[in-house]
């Protein structure tokens, strides 16, 4: 197979351990969001960082609006990364929209994955009869309008100067460029796919052991949604952190690290 997934998804590899831990970021950011968490696993695992196509420093030219019109396209990429790097017994650590990407990948290729760590998962953001997703369709429309009108806001992130980490030159270089940048057209499309999707039926197809990490309150993925995911993935555990927001790996990384460690070494 051609080695193109690594470049396409801007793969960064480090760590001294054997078992691979692949970190998949959520909507609106990129692999930089994991930098408070990965140091805790570097000695024991092989860390694989990726950017979804269209985010961070992935190959933006590879953004095919048809392929990425559903999360399946992203799941296919995740599988290709595992295959190309010949990863086995993968622990997939996923945030936000990546949780459903990991769910789709694990349902399609269960033999590749050992465990799923799902931070703030939501299989469906939009309320539907008895199901509470947290949003009405018009809320999602409003988000798209926000992104649309923030054309100038998005492009102002092209060349920020960030203080890097001198111990990890590959990291500093990355940070000295830019991060969480997105082409506005891609951002809009990704937002539509992310917040308009419904993957509730895919949860039952997962056989991989999974941990759901939930914050409270989380306006993006409320507790009810996390519990729904827990109920529908058969071999899953649920932990609620004593912190709010949607990005605990940024705001309370120590809580995220200890939850993952407790789960892996229990």
């Amino acid at each position: 197979m051609e080695k193109n997934a690594q470049k396409r998804n801007n793969i960064n590899l480090f760590g001294k351990g054997q078992q691979p831990m692949i970190f998949a970021h959520g909507f609106g950011c990129d692999q930089n969001m994991w930098r408070f968490v990965t140091p805790a696993f570097e000695d024991t695992h092989r860390i694989v960082l990726m950017d979804h196509v269209g985010s961070g420093h992935s190959d933006h030219a590879a953004y095919d609006f048809e392929k990425y019109n559903s999360l399946t396209g992203y799941a296919q990429d995740l599988i290709e990364v595992c295959e190309e790097l010949q990863l086995q017994d993968v622990i997939a650590v996923a945030h936000s929209v990546s949780c459903m990407i990991a769910v789709l990948a694990a349902a399609a290729r269960p033999e590749l994955f050992d465990k799923l760590i799902l931070i703030g998962p939501s299989p469906c953001y939009i309320n539907d009869q008895d199901y509470f997703g947290g949003f009405d369709p018009k809320d999602i429309e409003e988000l798209i309008t926000t992104l649309e009108s923030n054309y100038l806001g998005w492009s102002s992130y092209i060349t920020p100067v960030i203080i890097g980490n001198p111990e990890k030159p590959e990291f500093s270089e990355e940070l000295n460029r830019s991060f969480c940048t997105m082409n506005p057209e891609i951002a809009k499309h990704f937002a539509k796919v992310t917040f308009g999707g419904d993957n509730r039926a895919d949860l039952a197809k997962v056989r991989t052991d999974s941990l759901i990490i939930q914050c409270h309150p989380d306006v993006i993925a409320p507790v009810e949604v996390g519990q729904f995911v827990h109920k529908n993935i058969r071999n899953s555990s649920f932990v609620q952190l004593n912190t709010s927001g949607h990005c605990p790996h940024l705001t309370a990384p120590e809580l995220v690290i200890s939850s993952i460690k407790n789960y892996l070494y229990a």
């Binding site: 930098r35 926000t146 960030i162 306006v219 949607h246 990005c247």
Partner: peptide, 29 residues
């Protein structure tokens, strides 16, 4: 904020603020 603005805040603005310590010229309603 409006709900759209909230999603934008949680998924993009706050992560950048946490990582970089500052943000500039973000348009929000």
């Amino acid at each position: 904020l409006s709900i759209g603005g909230r999603i934008y805040l949680e998924t993009h603005i706050m992560p950048i603020l946490q990582l970089r310590g500052e943000i500039a010229e973000i348009n929000i309603e």
